[in-house]
Design a protein around this nucleic acid. Structure first.
Lengths: 206, 206
DNA sequence: TAGATTGTTAATCGATTAACAATC
DNA sequence: TAGATTGTTAATCGATTAACAATC
């Protein structure tokens, strides 16, 4: 049942379903339907049913989906029924904002360590963390068996730092540097670049 | 020639092409090929040629693409041969990091104003900007004819603030709040939610 | 029961790739 | 010229949707 051969585009929608379901649960809701979920997300009801059916039968005809049950299932599917430690690399504006971000709670992640290579930043306090010396990053990550990293260093250093993260055993990188990373198979990268997102919209303007 | 009927998925790749071309130009490079571009981005050469050919003939057989020329064309296509003013709403950690972000330079955007509703933040300095009172946001945006917003307020307020942005004439919103926004046709939204990106990777881990 | 909604199938729609003539 | 690479076509591949039997 684990990993049939799910298209990545389907995997990409599951976190959106989960987020919406968690909002519904917060509102005290118990049941929802593929139609309601679709309306809230701008996705067709058929697609939502098809996506979910790849992993099992989670609903009931005539009734819909029990929100808490579906949340539990999606958390299992996405492997966030555990909490993943995060390493944040780069304690500049973006790195610091990420370290202080409250939005990871109950979503499968917690910041575990913060590194920078700037002597002015090493030893300083960011949120609940002391910025550690990047020179010792590889050993520290390896010792703590951290698998997920957020990369918030300048573009010029991003590839080199990514190489060291991979050497340290990191296999998922959320990259805030505006540059495409080259990584070996088995390492996953996601990109956050506000300018890219903005440009995608200005195409449609005027 | 403007707006035949380009698939959104193609539009979404153009900023990536542009970013890579700008890196090449910075390295002093003059020419590239669909093959080289593809290798750097993990995209097939055929796809890049097909994407670009939707907008014109920008290359030369046997030679490839002149980097500066293609940059110019992509900037025109994406409407970033102008600089767009940005309004940042929310002067918390994320909003402040966005305001101070140096990565918009030469990519078509500049922060123009910053708003918050917290009396402790109003009047304070963030980077080069003074945080303005959110109560006057709609009039200020309308008067300055700003069209693009970055939304960095708590999820609970995001939809309400988005409504006011749209009322003010905003038609592109980059939303950092972890919630799906409901917007009318003609308003575009892009989402940045680190937890969503991370969950998309943990699916593949262990 | 009547109404609602699932899970699934088949049909449609759209995106990607392979291949190659054109030509620099 | 020979080699390289484009722009484009047709074929392949994959994703979405419409429809409906099953059933709660």
């Amino acid at each position: 049942m684990e990993h049939k051969d799910i298209p990545d585009i389907v995997v990409g929608r599951l976190p959106l379903y989960l987020r919406t379901l968690q909002h519904m649960a917060q509102d005290g809701r118990l049941l929802t339907s593929s139609q309601e979920l679709g309306e809230r997300l701008g996705i067709s009801a058929a697609q939502i049913r098809k996506d979910l059916s790849q992993f099992g039968e989670f609903g009931k005809q005539g009734t819909g989906y029990q929100i808490e049950f579906l949340i539990k299932k999606l958390r299992e599917i996405l492997h966030i029924n555990q909490e993943w430690d995060l390493v944040v690399v780069g304690a500049g504006d973006i790195g610091s904002a990420v370290v202080r971000y409250r939005g990871f709670a109950n979503r499968g992640f917690r910041v575990a360590m913060v590194f920078d290579s700037d002597p002015d930043k090493i030893g300083s306090q960011v949120g609940d963390f002391t910025v550690q010396d990047g020179s010792y990053m590889v050993e520290a990550i390896r010792a703590a068996r951290v698998k997920v990293a957020m990369l918030a260093v300048p573009a010029a250093q991003a590839q080199e730092v990514a190489n060291r993260l991979i050497e340290a055993g990191i296999c998922a990188i959320l990259n805030y540097a505006p540059i495409s990373l080259n990584v070996p198979p088995g390492v996953f990268v996601q990109y956050i670049d506000p300018a890219i997102h903005l440009q995608r919209m200005t195409y449609y303007l005027v």
